[in-house]
């Protein structure tokens, strides 16, 4: 293997951090995007009464 352990682990570690930051920002935006609010509320309520069979 050409790449040494040192470089590999440095790349791994820094990449991991950036990935973490990007992912958390992305998810926060998704979860708090106002346009999804209605959809989420609807989904949350949807499980309460779902025994009527598949809708068609």
């Amino acid at each position: 293997m050409d790449t040494s352990y040192e470089t590999l682990s440095t790349i791994a570690k820094s990449f991991g951090l950036f990935y973490l930051i990007a992912l958390s920002i992305g998810i926060t935006i998704y979860a708090f995007c106002p346009s999804f609010g209605k959809r989420f509320d609807k989904a949350a309520r949807s499980v309460l009464d779902d025994e009527e069979g598949p809708c068609r």
Binding site: M1, T3, S4, Y5, E6, L8, A12, F15, Y19
Partner: peptide, 20 residues
């Protein structure tokens, strides 16, 4: 994408065994 990265970061460098 979310689940693969952690394992990759931790395990892959260990395979550059000479230094480990």
């Amino acid at each position: 994408a979310a689940a693969a990265v952690g394992g990759f970061v931790e395990i892959a460098p260990l395979f550059s065994i000479d230094d480990t």
